[in-house]
Design a protein around this nucleic acid. Sequence first.
DNA 1: TATTGTTATACTCTATAACTATA
DNA 2: TATAGTTATAGAGTATAACAATA
Lengths: 158, 158
Amino acid sequence: MDEDLSKTVAAFRQLVTTINRAKTHGMLTEAAGVQLDRPDVQILVHLLDAGGPRRVGAIAEGLQVESPHVTRHVSSLERRGLLTRVKDPEDGRAWQIALTEEGADAAARCRRVTVEWFGAAISDWPVADRAELQRLLSKLSDDLCVHLQSRLADSSVR
Amino acid sequence: MDEDLSKTVAAFRQLVTTINRAKTHGMLTEAAGVQLDRPDVQILVHLLDAGGPRRVGAIAEGLQVESPHVTRHVSSLERRGLLTRVKDPEDGRAWQIALTEEGADAAARCRRVTVEWFGAAISDWPVADRAELQRLLSKLSDDLCVHLQSRLADSSVR
DNA sequence: TATTGTTATACTCTATAACTATA
DNA sequence: TATAGTTATAGAGTATAACAATA
């Protein structure tokens, strides 16, 4: 068993644990000045990142959750005026979910606060290390997702 | 707003999303040949990493959760024979939680499967990149945790 | 009186199944 | 008949509060 690899996984596990704490989310939403639960924030920021309206199914796929989960939060966010549902002109079954001005504003604040928090934590890193972190994390994200897909495909075939 | 930094955060978010999927946990436990939920696995592997018995409070602190959560899962794992509770000889209020042979075995399989999965995903990386990943992830984990502590302290003072 | 752990309870997050409407 | 989305339901995960026993 590779010793370095074990350390990498341990560090990663620690990181995920910290991110998932309720207190971490509370700190970020307080700083962003919003009262939104985690799925709410994920959906809003996803729409902001997408740069335009998206279907419920596309949001669910992007966030890797099932669509009923998205439906419930979209309904709640619509009631609060943070996004709107518009009939898809090309498919009568589908909806396009779009951020309102207020929703885009909240999403932008959440995203900014997160990036700032992350940035502050590594602010004293050498520039080269920060660049490497970006390159390696992106690569890791891609490779781990692809690898997981094939593993999941394997076990479902069996 | 730093463009590289945004990319780093986006990659990181994607990674956390993938890790947290129910299917990912299902794939890993199937490969390890165990039927344990996520908190169960976390507690067992934590005890294995610790290298010896630990108190409920210490486990809770290590996993960054509240102690009642640990109590419930420890009780269930004890009933299943994967760990034992022993009175702390130095403090009558406390318990030392220890892995049984079977528990240590299950923990080792879970940990090994996770590390192997992770390792397989980056198996074709250059050696230098893997070393850098380990170094940078460890540093990131430390810095993000420390930085979060100070942020949490700030907001609770206010 | 402070601390360790447990019990009781409730809330958050997410999945599955059954259904409706359109394609 | 297949697909997009919704409604209904259930389960996993975690926190808070109240309590017990010991320090």
